[in-house]
């Protein structure tokens, strides 16, 4: 127990540790700032005979110049830190980021499917399929996934009435049921 107590470092609360992969983020963010900086002439209107601080482009310039300066310092400090310190493997971390792309595809597929196949059916299938995909293959957990989907639809669309359109597939339902489905599911 005492060993565990000694490991506590209060400074961690207000000062985070660094990962070596921060350099990748640093390079990308600095490059993005430089690209934006190069576009200032094209992407904002410059009005003649108007003070710089009154120009429509004043705030974008402030922001982009800030991004560039802070980004340059960040990149320098990260590079310097990586030369002297440890803190995790860069490539494996970047590979982890890339793994998340699969779920972006899942999410966007869900987004495009809802207006076609309807909110409730799509959500039930989405939750079941994703539950199965992430490794829960037993019937009970997959059903729990479906239940989560149903609960989401009932709470947000049926009860709170958030604006999600009915699916195109609902058009094939009998009129009374169609209106009910469009309104609540």
């Amino acid at each position: 127990m005492s060993e565990q107590a000694e490991r506590h470092d209060l400074s961690e609360l207000i000062e985070a540790r660094h990962h070596r992969a921060e350099i990748v983020f640093g390079i990308i963010s600095f490059a993005a700032a430089l690209i934006l900086l190069s576009q200032i002439g094209n992407q904002v209107t410059w009005v003649k005979n108007l003070r710089f601080v009154q120009q429509p482009g004043f705030w974008p310039v402030v922001a982009i110049v800030g991004m560039t300066i802070f980004g340059a310092f960040e990149l320098y400090f990260t590079w310097r830190r990586n030369r002297t310190h440890g803190g995790g493997r860069v490539l494996s971390e970047v590979a982890d980021w890339a793994r998340a792309l699969e779920y972006v595809v899942w999410f966007m597929a869900y987004v495009f499917a809802v207006p076609v196949t309807g909110y409730l059916p799509t959500t039930m299938v989405f939750c079941a399929a994703l539950t199965w995909r992430i490794g829960y293959r037993d019937t009970r957990t997959v059903l729990l996934g479906v239940l989560t989907g149903v609960a989401t639809v009932v709470v947000f669309k049926s009860l709170l009435g958030v604006r999600i359109p009915g699916g195109a597939v609902y058009e094939y339902l009998p009129p009374a049921l169609r209106n009910f489905m469009i309104l609540y599911f």
Binding site: F107, T131, I134, Y136, T148, T152, F156, I164
Partner: peptide
């Protein structure tokens, strides 16, 4: 991960209900 699935499903409501 189950929680992740639930949050992803709920996030859709948040974003999509704004302007479809």
């Amino acid at each position: 991960r189950f929680l992740g699935m639930a949050i992803l499903t709920l996030s859709f409501v948040g974003v999509y209900s704004l302007r479809n």
